[in-house]
Design a protein around this nucleic acid. Structure first.
Lengths: 235, 235
DNA sequence: GCTACTATTATCCAAACGTATAAAAGAAAG
DNA sequence: CTTTCTTTTATACGTTTGGATAATAGTAGC
């Protein structure tokens, strides 16, 4: 009577990644409630019991999924400027603009992020992950700001990095949740203008002067593609 | 055998509000998963069955809770400047600063907002509610910007309102999720400086020049108190 | 081509979920 | 004081949840 389904054994790492990716997709699409063990297993192409073989509890898988998301975002910030021009103003402009385009700006990305908020607030370990990721991104931004041809002390740099980061976060939020409310490219333009105004540098002009094909403008680094896969086929 | 518990009949509106408040608190504290019908009923001091008497489905209660939240926030923006000085720069400064303080900046407030994101993205009716609320807040901001002693056409006003709103949203997000990362008053200061830089107006100086007791600075309007109740005793 | 290992499936379980329905009790009307 | 109404409680139902355990089948080593 037993029509036992055929299967292939996969390397541990590959299965873990598949389960994590499935969990992320489901959270992104339908919120935390949609990411049940059975739904995750089905999406990953395995049966529910296997989850327990790789993660001792569902919470553990959930934590792993959040860590993976934060790692993606950190890598995004770190590798975005690989091969970018050396000019500090151009580099900052590329960084800001790339942060305000898909796949970063994406309804599902916000859904994914929002789906973990409570776990982050309640679990100290995840809180630390979040904090480290936030700081890393902000520090990257601050380093770019520090390279600008201006005079600025540490306190001012800190405030400017917080403010620039806030502009990016806010536009990311609005553009992701209400995409039809903004014209294509409008968020990038507003972001460049606003961060430029905060720092006293004309980022919009610097961006316009860049040749196409520069990293972050057209060709996305591999890491961005992986992030795009995570939140693929946006609404 | 039946120790039937005693109860008091309450007016319909009061019960609805109690159930909505209970649902909001639970979402704010523990995410959407924590807001089960039984937990909501217990928090509201009634038994689970009563929910069905006031809301034909749990989803309907959930929608009502989101609408109520958005109404609170809209009212916050609308009444914040009641009794404020007529000087446009001061009014804008008060508006920005008040948006970057508790009870607006609050971990539970972010949790509450995040807990509804997926419902908002999937339910067209809630999406419309969200859009209207966002636009109303932004329009309020844009009207304040338009009153500034400057020359600016409509397109520029729109961009500036989007950008200023983004600064507020971003700082709200960061300050709420990672409160220990910022000194008291730091977010307000950064918000005033940044929005000021974007608009070319010195909001920080205007804020510093205000006497204490001005609406939005110390005495919070009643509506803010109601919002504070919703997200009370923050982490 | 066995044998041993373990990744994977299959099945089961108790708890919790949203919902439906019936019984009881508070409050107002006569 | 009785009657009527409807808010509220109580109970039950079918489903789904996360987790545990036992059986099976791929795969690598000899």
């Amino acid at each position: 009577m037993a029509d036992r389904r055929t299967y292939r054994r996969e390397p541990e790492e590959k299965r873990r990644e598949a389960l994590i990716a499935a969990a992320q997709e489901l959270v992104a699409e339908g919120g935390p409630k949609a990411a049940t063990v059975r739904a995750i297993a089905e999406r990953a192409g395995v049966t529910a019991g296997l989850i327990r073989h790789y993660f001792s509890t569902k919470d553990e898988l959930s934590q792993a999924a959040y860590r993976a998301l934060m790692d993606h975002m950190t890598d995004f910030g770190a590798h975005l400027l690989d091969g970018a021009p050396a000019d500090p103003v151009s580099r900052l402009a590329i960084f800001v603009a790339a942060s305000l385009r898909p796949p970063v700006v994406d309804g599902k990305a916000v859904g994914l992020w929002a789906g973990f908020i409570h776990q982050v607030r309640s679990d100290p370990a995840l809180r630390a992950v979040h904090e480290a990721s936030y700081l890393r991104f902000r520090d990257t931004l601050q380093a770019l700001i520090a390279d600008l041809p201006r005079d600025a002390d540490a306190a001012r740099l800190r405030r400017e990095a917080i403010a620039s980061n806030a502009v990016i976060d806010g536009l990311w939020l609005e553009g992701s949740v209400l995409p039809e409310m903004f014209a294509p490219g409008e968020l990038e333009q507003i972001g460049l203008t606003s961060v430029g105004a905060i720092l006293g540098v004309d980022l919009a002009a610097a961006m316009a002067a860049l040749p196409t094909g520069v990293p972050g403008t057209i060709a996305a680094p591999a890491i961005v593609q992986r992030l795009a896969d995570t939140v693929k086929d946006s609404a």
